[in-house]
Amino acid sequence: MGLLDQEFTEGNIVIAKTEDLFNWARLSSLWQVGFGLACCAIEMMATSASHYDFDRFGVIPRPSPRQSDVIIISGTVTLKMAIRVKRLYEQMPDPKYVISMGSCSNCGGPYWEHGYHVLKGVDRVIPVDVYVPGCPPRPEALLEGLLKLQEKIRNESIVKKSA
């Protein structure tokens, strides 16, 4: 990374841009809301288990949205649930990020044609940062989605606010 792998020989003073420091702090400890809807939730649980560890990236599941940074929408969002998803998103404090996992929350998935109760993509109610395709996505794909989110956060700027 360039910040910590240098020896502190004299003075223990590190010089960096504040933006870099904030971004590095934010991307290394993204705490997620434990929000699993359907089949993709099982793959998310498998990613948090010991085979494909999520914790080594700093991601811990938190029970409440008021204490978390990222919400992973994993599974089909129905019309009945969409109102509650919007309420959960509004309860999260800034800065917050959204990962949409699986085809059902990207675009409606296999239920796009005749699903009278399925919301065709969660981006109709909340803004999404990263889309992870798959049905369900493998744990490696979800980890890549997380790395892309970290890439996006690394390039953020506190002067120019993003959408």
Partner: peptide, 9 residues
């Protein structure tokens, strides 16, 4: 539409 959300694809 249902409560502001577009229902068809």
């Amino acid at each position: 539409f249902y409560q502001g959300m577009k229902v068809p694809y």
